[in-house]
Amino acid sequence: MKRIAVITATRAEYGLLFPLIKELRKYENSKFVVELIVTGTHLTEEYGKTKENIINDGIRIDQEIHIPVKSDSRLDIANNQAETLRKFAQLFNDIQYDAVVILGDRYEMLMVAVAATDMHIPIIHLYGGDTTEGAMDECIRHSITKMSYLHFATNEESRRRIIQMGENPKRVFNYGATGTDNILKSEKLTKKEALASVGLPYDCKYAVCTYHPVTLEEGNIELLIMNFLKALSYFDDVQFIITKSNADQGGMLINRVLEREAGNFSNIHIFSSLGRKRYLSLIKYSEAVIGNSSSGIMEAPVFHIPTVNIGDRQKGRLQSESIINCDTDVHSIVEAIKYALSDEMKMLCCHVQNPYGDGNASPKIAKKIMETLQTGMKLKKKFYNIEIND
């Protein structure tokens, strides 16, 4: 029997893997199985125990691997990585999967990739080749790329970067982003249902927000999140639905500040997690997406919703015209939000083009994975040289 593992450690990553898991499991039979391994923040109360969202989606969970998620310091992250490596090396030693599917650039996924490499298990990587100059994700993403055999980029620029890193074009594909599949094909709540689920009236004006730490900046995290909250306070006619930060270094501090300050703002509503379906439904009817999450870059444009992208965390990532980039000071954020809420921006967003695929990535990726499993994946890779004109 052939067996592949799909790994997820966070709510955002699971949301992007969801349509692919469904497509891969269409191929399950007596000779092939797709195991979902859940780890990281999915299993912790402080990050919303989002394992329950997976269960509510009707997705079978095959393995649960508990790892630490403390993220106040660099040493916390390093210790988390060490334990992740130890536990996944043991898992992959006990179960010799035919392939492991990893998405993106999380520090936990780097350790999963190292464990798979140590145990001679081929890696299938999604969302490689992107650039995010403001975060450690940049080097982690490229490191996973070099350990991987099969690559599925979300856009043509990223596909070319993967090839530039020495990966053979025959193993690098651009079918678009699975996140676009979610938006265009998955069932969503009505506006009334979505707003009722977060305790807001049907006719309110609102925005969806997420603010993550910028892991390559040494600035005062508390100052940055307070600037963000102060900027939101200028718009008392808008309700702000804020999802807590992830488990990157500084994420816990951001969440503590959000919890501490929430009571001082009548129009701010904090959630550990909204779940895939509710999150996308709320974006669909929102005035804007605000913060520094990749979903504002890659998903909001599909809904023709403006994004206020704060700071450098997503710098370098392919963007559509609906993205408004701004600095981290209060004035810059306020001005960017004003423009996002303007009639001019709403008109522009009506015609914006999404650069991340047509919503059919997941079936194509699943088919290519199955074809590759049949032909086999060799761990010995020849570096693909490209000609450089000096």
Rank of each mutant, 00 (worst) to 15 (best):
L24Y: 06
V334K: 13
Y384R: 03
R160M: 14
Q353L: 13
V352L: 07
R278W: 02
K368P: 01
M377R: 09
R106L: 10
M345E: 05
T44W: 06
P19K: 07
S71F: 02
E261Y: 13
A231S: 15
P301S: 04
E217Y: 04
I305Y: 04
V302K: 14
G296S: 08
I365T: 06
G129D: 07
A9K: 01
I54K: 03
M1N: 06
G251E: 02
L200T: 10
S197V: 01
K382H: 12
R161E: 05
Q164N: 08
Q249L: 01
F32A: 10
I37P: 05
I7E: 02
S272Y: 11
N309E: 11
E187S: 15
V308F: 02
I254D: 02
G250P: 01
S197Y: 07
N79L: 10
V330R: 10
L150Y: 08
I124W: 15
A300H: 12
L274D: 03
R86C: 13
T154K: 06
C139A: 14
G291K: 09
D203W: 11
N79F: 13
D130N: 10
T39W: 13
K230G: 02
K146D: 00
E387N: 15
I323G: 00
M377D: 14
I225K: 00
S295I: 14
I183D: 05
V34A: 06
M347S: 14
F152C: 09
K188E: 12
R3D: 04
Y356E: 10
A9G: 10
G134C: 08
G359Y: 04
R74W: 03
A78N: 11
C350L: 13
F92W: 00
V114H: 14
G359L: 09
T10A: 15
A262Q: 12
R25Q: 08
Y206H: 08
I369M: 07
S73Y: 03
F228M: 08
L91H: 08
F240L: 04
I163A: 04
M111H: 14
T154G: 03
A194Y: 09
I323T: 00
R160N: 15
E13T: 04
A177L: 06
H125Y: 13
G166S: 01
A116E: 04
M119K: 15
V172S: 06
R256M: 08
F32V: 05
V208N: 03
N220Y: 11
N227R: 00
Y127H: 15
E138C: 06
R159F: 05
M136L: 14
D62I: 08
M345Y: 07
V352M: 09
T41Q: 09
R161P: 07
R256C: 12
E64L: 12
R106Q: 11
C350I: 05
D329V: 03
I183H: 10
G48A: 01
V34R: 01
A116M: 05
Y97S: 03
H42G: 05
R260C: 08
I95K: 06
N174C: 03
K367C: 09
C350A: 11
V114K: 13
A82L: 12
G376K: 09
M377A: 11
T44D: 09
K244W: 00
